[in-house]
Design a protein around this nucleic acid. Sequence first.
DNA 1: TAATTTTGTTAGAATAATCTAACTCCATAC
DNA 2: GTATGGAGTTAGATTATTCTAACAAAATTA
Lengths: 219, 219
Amino acid sequence: MASVTEENYLKALFILVTERGMATISDLSKLLKVSLPTANSMIKNLKKQELVNYEKYKPLSLTEKGRREAALVLRKHRLTEMFLVNEMGFGWEEVHEIAEQIEHINSPIFFDRMDKLMGHPTIDPHGSPIPDKDGHIAEEVYEQLSNCRTGEKVRLIALAHSASDFLRYLNNRDLSLGVEMRIVSIEAYDGSMVVSYDNHPAETLTHPVCEKLRVEKVD
Amino acid sequence: MASVTEENYLKALFILVTERGMATISDLSKLLKVSLPTANSMIKNLKKQELVNYEKYKPLSLTEKGRREAALVLRKHRLTEMFLVNEMGFGWEEVHEIAEQIEHINSPIFFDRMDKLMGHPTIDPHGSPIPDKDGHIAEEVYEQLSNCRTGEKVRLIALAHSASDFLRYLNNRDLSLGVEMRIVSIEAYDGSMVVSYDNHPAETLTHPVCEKLRVEKVD
DNA sequence: TAATTTTGTTAGAATAATCTAACTCCATAC
DNA sequence: GTATGGAGTTAGATTATTCTAACAAAATTA
C-alpha cells in the first residue's frame, strides 16, 4: 500500500490534473514544497509502481490505478472535513489541516462509519464532490464567479480553494455556500466585482477571489 | 516534537513501567516488535532528548518530560477510543487499532473538541483512566479478579488488556464494564474461576482471563 | 537563430528507522 | 567460582525521503 508520502504525491497530482488539465514535476515540487530532484525521484518510484505515466521531460498523468488510489485519499479527506463540520461542530476554515492528517488513516470501517453517520454526503463543506468507494468522482461543472456578467444573479455553490485565511475572509463577509448574490458591477481594469446579497448591498471582491468562487446561475 | 515512532516508544515505555514497575530494552523490543539493536539505538536517541533515563545495561525509566509526552499520547489514544464508542457507535473490540493511528494526529483543537463533546470523560471504554491535558493520570487501584476469593461479589470495572480477540471473548459471554458477579468457586489446580452474573449462572473463566479483569468489591 | 530562463535530470550525500552478524556483559545454576 | 544463556551493545548495511550542486534539455525572449 502507498506510504503517507506517496499518498500525498498522488493526491497532489490528482488535484493538479483536475484543476489545470495537466501537471509537471515542478508543479508538484511547488505544491508539496519539496525540491525538484525530490519530486523527480518520487515520480520515478510511482512510475515503477505503475501509479503514474511518465517519460523523461514529458508532463505527468495518473494511471487508472493511480487515479483510483488518489481519489480514495481525496474521499477520506473530504469525508473527514464533512464529519468535522457536521458532527463535531468545527468551522469550515478549521478543518483542512486536521483532514490532511486523518486522510492517511488506514481503516475502511472508520471512514465507512463516518459516511454512514452523515447519510452518505456527496459534497464536502467547501462544495467539492466526495469520490465514492470505487474512486469515482462527480465532475465539477460550476462556473467561476469571475466569468459571470454584470446583472446576473448567482448562487455560491463551491470553492476552488479552502485555505483557512481565504475561508476566514469569506466568513468576515458572511459569505457561505448557498448565498445568492447579484453582480452589481465589474471593474474592467482589475476584474474586481461589486456584488450584493443579504445584508451586504455592495461588497467588493477582487479578481483572485472571484476566480475561486464557484457559482450556478439563478433564473 | 516527537515523531510517530518516538511517540510509540514513549507510550510503550509508559505502559510497561505502569504495568510492571520497570522496563528493559528487550521488553520494549518485544512489545514494539522491533529488534533489540533497533530499540537500543532509539533509546539512545530518546536519552539524548532527555525523554528517558538510561545507563548502559541498566533498566529504563521516563524522565518527567518523557512521562508527560507519553501520557499525552495515551490521552489522545483513550479519548479517541471513547469517542469511537460513544459518538460513532463502534464496539469496544473495534477501537484499539483505529486509536493506534489517530493518537498520532497533531491537533490540539481536534482532541479538545472530542473531549468537550463527550463531557470530559475520565475513563476509556475499557475502564482505563484518561490522562488530563497536563499529562496527569489517575492511579488504577482496582483489584484483579484472580486475587479475589470464593463467595465474594465484585463489579467489573476495567480491563488490563484490550486486544480485540479478548474483547470478543468477553462479548460472547455478555461481560461488560459494570457487570456484578459472584465467585462461585475457584479451581486450585489451574486458578480458573466459576462466576455467576445476570443470565449466566456458571461461567468458567481461566486464570489468564481473571488476571486481566479488574474489579471492585460490592458490599 | 541565438541567448536566456525555466524545467528537468543525475550524482552524491544526509537523516530516520530499521535490520543481521558478531561480540560483550551479567545473573544464576551448577 | 566458572560456565552458560539471556540481555545488551557495536558495527555495518538497507530503505525511504529528503537535500544541494552541477549539468542538460526545453521553452521563451530578444
